[in-house]
């Protein structure tokens, strides 16, 4: 069983991995994957903020079996989940745009190597 802190550390490690892929890899698709990993690490971070380490966490939905006070004490924070959903949608938009650009770049330059795509300089 992992403690709360180590979850955060793992999350930051995931983000570091994304940054590594973004900086060190020259392949366009790998760069895109790096960006997506960074995005997801932040999303995971937001989810972790709403997580309750103590006690049993339940989904933030009220029904007949669970009273309002018990729900407030036990349920995970729903706001970060709503925020993450929005941020995932935005991530989907950017990912689609990145994929489209990657296809178009390949059409024009016949390569996925970012170091060969260098017409703009100075």
């Amino acid at each position: 069983m992992l403690s709360h802190t180590s979850l955060y550390i793992l999350d930051i490690a995931l983000m570091g991995m994304g940054i590594y892929a973004l900086i060190a890899k020259r392949h366009i698709i790998k760069k895109i994957i790096g960006v997506v990993i960074i995005e997801y690490a932040i999303n995971l971070f937001l989810i972790l903020i709403g997580y309750r380490a103590e006690g049993v966490a339940v989904a933030p939905i009220q029904d007949a079996e669970i009273g309002a006070t018990e729900l407030a004490a036990k349920a995970v924070d729903p706001l970060p989940q709503a925020l993450v959903l929005t941020s995932i949608v935005i991530g989907l938009g950017t990912l689609a745009l990145m994929a489209a650009l990657a296809i178009k770049l390949y059409e024009k330059y016949k390569t996925f190597d970012m170091s060969e795509i260098n017409r703009l300089r100075g």
């Binding site: 949608v89 989907l92 689609a96 994929a99 489209a100 296809i103 390949y106 059409e107």
Partner: peptide, 24 residues
């Protein structure tokens, strides 16, 4: 909105994207 957009994105990336690369 999301369903149609995602389908359109998939169409654009898979079918239309492939046609134009083959022509090139």
């Amino acid at each position: 909105k999301v369903g149609a957009a995602l389908y359109a994105v998939f169409l654009a990336l898979s079918i239309y994207g492939r046609i134009s690369t083959e022509e090139d």
